[in-house]
């Protein structure tokens, strides 16, 4: 993995997309449960600059994933507003693609047809079919195009899900613990893959994770959330160039700081 992180990917001349500018203004949200409302988000203020990689870090079940669903437009926020490039987010939109913790591939479709889903849904598959092959090549699964999802390993399935997102040329990639269910080796490799994909395409990224190292290794900024209802506790800037080295002393320092914010610094 060390060797892998040191290989420098060739920088493309110009990013293929411009990243979305996301502004989250005073967003609060709650779930309506039987015993009354359960607050999950409390006055969240967050700006994601175009092309920025931001990680949301927080304890399990604190409401990070809910924030992602609001950003994706899958649900309306109870209070506050979410803006993409100045326009309010009301509905899901293919410019903001979510990759979930489960790959959620359609088992009845081959890998190629799964990747083609977004193009087909928007009725542009015929015109842009070549993008499917490009996306498959990007995640290294061209040879597996005709395979059905049940024949894939967890890591491969998650890469297909990634290709399914990238084929749409998103301005914002919303990653909801996308590596959470992978074994640790696959996970490390895919962290580097994701970073290099992001570097080469120029979209903005919002990554939800509860893995401190993952957040610090990948993101430019790490937003630390409190317990539910989630409030922003800290906004850490990871001032390290890519590709990063996992053993870097600066990362260790930041990790200590982040774990401290989560109340887990006793062992570090």
């Amino acid at each position: 993995m060390v060797a892998l992180a040191q290989v420098r990917p060739p920088r493309p001349a110009a990013p293929t997309t411009t990243g979305a500018h996301i502004r989250i203004r005073g967003v609060s949200h709650h779930f309506d449960l039987k015993d009354g409302p359960l607050p999950v988000l409390d006055g969240v203020e967050l700006d994601v600059a175009p092309g920025e990689f931001v990680a949301l870090l927080g304890p399990s079940g604190c409401g990070k994933s809910t924030l992602l669903r609001l950003v994706a437009g899958l649900e309306p926020a109870a209070a506050g507003e979410l803006l993409q490039d100045g326009r309010p987010i009301r509905n899901p939109d293919p410019s903001r693609i979510v990759v979930f913790q489960d790959p959620t591939l359609y088992p009845w479709r081959t890998v190629r047809d799964n990747v083609a889903l977004g193009l087909q849904a928007r009725g542009v598959l015929r015109r842009e079919a070549h993008r499917v092959e490009q996306a498959l090549a990007l995640v290294g699964l061209s040879e597996f195009a005709e395979v059905h999802p049940h024949q894939l390993s967890g890591g491969m399935a998650q890469r297909v899900a990634l290709a399914r997102a990238l084929v749409n040329d998103p301005a914002l990639l919303v990653l909801d613990e996308p590596l959470g269910k992978l074994d640790s080796l696959t996970r490390l490799a895919m962290q580097s893959e994701l970073v290099s994909l992001w570097q080469r395409s120029g979209f903005s990224v919002l990554l939800v994770t509860h893995d401190v190292e993952e957040a610090l290794f990948m993101a430019q900024r790490v937003i630390v959330f409190s317990e539910r209802p989630a409030r922003i506790k800290a906004d850490l800037t990871v001032d390290l160039p890519y590709p990063r080295h996992r053993g870097s002393p600066r990362l260790a320092e930041l990790r200590h700081q982040a774990l401290g914010l989560l109340g887990l610094d006793a062992t570090w």
């Binding site: 290989v7 060739p10 990007l138 024949q151 967890g154 080796l185 994909l197």
Partner: peptide, 27 residues
């Protein structure tokens, strides 16, 4: 996950980048 056969073996190769912009993920 109803699909997804468990990953059974360790990764043998690291990622390599070819000089074309096409990135090949580790197999």
């Amino acid at each position: 996950a109803p699909y997804g056969t468990p990953y059974t073996g360790p990764r043998q190769t690291g990622a390599r980048y070819s000089d074309a912009a096409v990135y090949r993920a580790p197999k």
